[in-house]
Amino acid sequence: MGEVANCPHCNAIFFRGPATMCKDCMKKEEEQFQTVYAFMRIRKNRTAQIPQIVEGTGVPEKQIRKFVKQKRLHPAQFPSLSYECEKCGGPIQDGRICLDCIKEIESGLKQVERDKELSEMKNQAAKMTYYSVKDD
């Protein structure tokens, strides 16, 4: 059995297990999802962007983006849907961070590698220094 916890949405007490919120909030969230999904299934709404979905359904933007992030609403079916990159906040449709941030992180890692190699080469060069002794 799960541990006792407070619901992050309504502060009600519930048993946390696979569920991360109380049954009432889960039911409300599922109703919101069904509302958004029914709206998006209408042909003319398939290319709707988040503000249009909010206006048409009354479901908060944060909740719609959560559905996209959880892959309950697939960007392949609804190409105008996205959620925020965890690093820069830009719109993405897959993963946790955008391609620009991935490239930035990779270039930073490569720079660290180059700096480490350069430092090792300097240390080896310092060890290989030879001195000549002048005998009189």
Rank of each mutant, 00 (worst) to 15 (best):
V59K: 06
K122A: 10
Q52Y: 06
P79L: 14
Q70K: 13
K44Q: 07
Q77T: 09
L99V: 07
F33H: 13
E106N: 15
D136P: 14
Q49C: 02
Q111Y: 09
M40Q: 01
E86N: 15
D115Q: 13
C98M: 00
K69W: 03
E31D: 10
M121D: 09
R96P: 00
Q52P: 04
N11H: 07
Q32S: 09
I13Q: 01
A125G: 07
D24R: 09
N123K: 10
L118Q: 14
F14N: 03
F78G: 06
E55A: 15
E86M: 10
H74D: 15
K71C: 11
G2P: 01
Q34P: 03
E84H: 13
K87Q: 15
I92W: 03
M121E: 10
S80L: 05
M128S: 09
I97N: 05
E120I: 03
C88P: 09
G108A: 04
K62L: 12
M40D: 02
C10K: 01
K87N: 15
P91F: 10
F78M: 07
S82V: 01
S82W: 14
C22L: 07
F14Q: 00
V68L: 09
V59M: 11
C101R: 15
A38M: 06
F78P: 00
R114S: 14
P79V: 08
E31I: 01
M121C: 06
C10V: 06
K103V: 06
K122N: 12
D135A: 07
F14I: 01
K66H: 07
T57M: 08
N6W: 02
K127D: 12
